[in-house]
Amino acid sequence: MSSSPSAASSDSSHLVAEFRTEFGKGFARRARKAGKIPAVLYGHGTDPRHLALNAREFARAIKAGANTVLHLTLPDGEALALPKSVVKHPLRDYVEHIDLILVRRGERVTVDVPVIVTGEAAPGSLVLTDLNTLSLEADALEIPDSVEVSVEGLAVGTQVLAGAVVLTGGTTLVTDPEALVVAVQAAPTADELSAETEAVEAELGVERDLPEDEQAAADAEKSDS
């Protein structure tokens, strides 16, 4: 149960940002055609700054993780920023807008970090993940890509709570330590799965097609009656 440091300091996180003075859907369309993404940078009591980022560079940067700190080169200097909101088009595969928050070296930030479940629980068990992310407080430049929860050999009935997840690198837990992260339950039998499926189908009014021999018998019974 460990966490690995983010690749925030890699070259891929360095982006050149332009200031923009245009807004609205018309500008957004023109920016997209030019390979740019509209963005807003704010935080630490500063006035919001409206930017345009290179779409390919941004996509390459966040491959390291959604919590990658971006090293921005602005027309008036350098800045570190954390993506707060990345708005994607609901149907097409492109980013429409990005909200960025200024961060400083040594500053601690609260972020949601993915939970990765590893290992195999005891035979005949089923592992259920209740929380897909944990809220953590971490140094802005040392945000983990993920936290691992090992279920290797865990018996049926075992529960892993947030407070039991081992964190490293000075990261601290913000999520309620009593929150359930992973539960190991007995795997349902084939009969239990079938009964559950039939119950759902009955509730939805779904009628199954009978096997040919059973259907023929049912049809014969109807004709006799």
Rank of each mutant, 00 (worst) to 15 (best):
S3H: 08
E201N: 14
G153M: 02
N54D: 15
L154R: 00
A162W: 01
E214R: 13
V200D: 10
L131C: 03
L167H: 02
A190V: 09
A34T: 05
E198N: 07
S9R: 06
E221L: 04
H50L: 14
V156R: 06
G45Q: 07
V127S: 11
I37H: 00
V69Q: 01
R92L: 14
K33Y: 01
G170H: 11
D47T: 11
E22R: 08
S85A: 10
S13C: 12
T110L: 09
L136D: 04
A216D: 12
G169Y: 06
F19V: 10
S6N: 07
L161E: 07
S6G: 15
A218C: 09
F58S: 10
T118P: 07
G119W: 03
V40Y: 05
D11S: 15
A187K: 13
L100N: 02
T158S: 15
G35K: 12
R56F: 07
S4N: 10
D213R: 10
R105W: 03
E107T: 09
A138W: 03
G35C: 10
A216C: 08
F19G: 09
A220Q: 13
D93E: 14
A138K: 10
R92V: 05
V113M: 06
A138R: 05
A138Y: 03
L51W: 01
V117Y: 01
S13A: 14
P188V: 12
S125F: 06
R32H: 12
